[in-house]
Design a protein around this nucleic acid. Structure first.
Lengths: 173, 173
DNA sequence: CACTGATTTCACAAAGTTGTGAAGTTAAGA
DNA sequence: TCTTAACTTCACAACTTTGTGAAATCAGTG
């Protein structure tokens, strides 16, 4: 019993397609719980494991076993939030969808926008309950925290960039 | 025309109930878009604007115009993720639900758990596509970033605590 | 220990979301 | 300009989620 009957790694391809499919669904599930639409999450995951992070709608449709219509809707969303680009080389029939390498920024910028919305809504609330009431004071603290967060997000990414650069060009050659 | 006919600020109460209700819905909407369940978001918002951040199920039910059953479900969730506490003073009939003042921690800890899940799922993915394939390299970078994030989150809160302390006890008395 | 008010659970109805097939639109190549 | 492959849009059906009323459970109080 040294072979794996169901989850077989094909030496030619170098990847265990069964496990890849499982991973796609597992990553998609996590992203869904984080608030991403189901199909968009699956498309995202499929692109992430594709070797050149670039697939056509037809390939996505086949790999995920869904209709082209579903792909169309999913990529529209991913495009809007800036996580993928649609590419068509001159003289080509089909679009390719590419994952942004720095999609972290894109997805986090979206969250940043939400925090700002939260903050702005809360400022309205302070006025409504009265700035000096206990609730008003509490809401003011909330705004302080949200302002802090908004200011902090760019710093986090700076730090990540630094760290990445250090890894790619270590101090000692 | 110096009075506001619909959105009236009652001097006795010191708050514009109409505007408060609007704020509750607006905050709830934002939180929903951030991934919180609708009713839980409304309960959270209602507690945030209540003067002592403490309401009974009946009060919540009335203020939000929903059944006690709906409140029951919403507070169960909020309790699970640690954003509220259920309190009943000895010799009382009804529970009070209180907003954690440092609910930021709770809500962010939940997100932290998600990031870890994402990270762990991705490690599985690396094995599936082969660590040396282009996809494998890309997924490794993803893991690096997620590890960075997980490490960063506690530091952010440390910084917030410092800032808050400075505000409350400024260097010059 | 029975009574009563409060909360939770459960089955179901209403509302919302998601993916499909089919029809419509766009653009490359003859 | 016509043909055709590829993508998008739309109405609808399947599925999921959410909130309700009614019944059950729980906890104080006489």
């Amino acid at each position: 019993m040294s072979s794996r009957p169901q989850s077989q790694r094909d030496p030619a391809k170098g990847r265990d397609e069964e496990a890849v499919r499982k991973y796609i669904e597992s990553l998609a599930l996590t992203l869904t719980q984080l608030g991403m639409q189901r199909m968009s999450a699956r498309v995202f995951a499929a692109l992430a494991v594709s070797d050149d992070s670039r697939l056509t709608a037809a390939e996505l449709s086949e790999q995920l076993s869904v209709s082209p219509a579903a792909i169309s809707g999913a990529v529209r969303y991913l495009d809007q939030v800036g996580m993928i680009v649609k590419e068509r080389l001159p003289g080509e029939r089909r679009d390719h969808y590419r994952l942004y390498d720095d999609f972290w920024f894109a997805s986090t910028l979206k969250r940043d926008r939400m925090v700002r919305m939260w903050r702005d809504a809360t400022v309205e609330g302070i006025d409504a309950v009265g700035p000096d009431s206990p609730a008003g004071v509490r809401l003011s603290h909330m705004v302080d925290f949200l302002d802090f967060l908004v200011a902090e997000i760019p710093r986090i990414f700076e730090r990540w960039e630094q760290l990445r650069e250090q890894r790619e060009h270590p101090p000692e050659g």
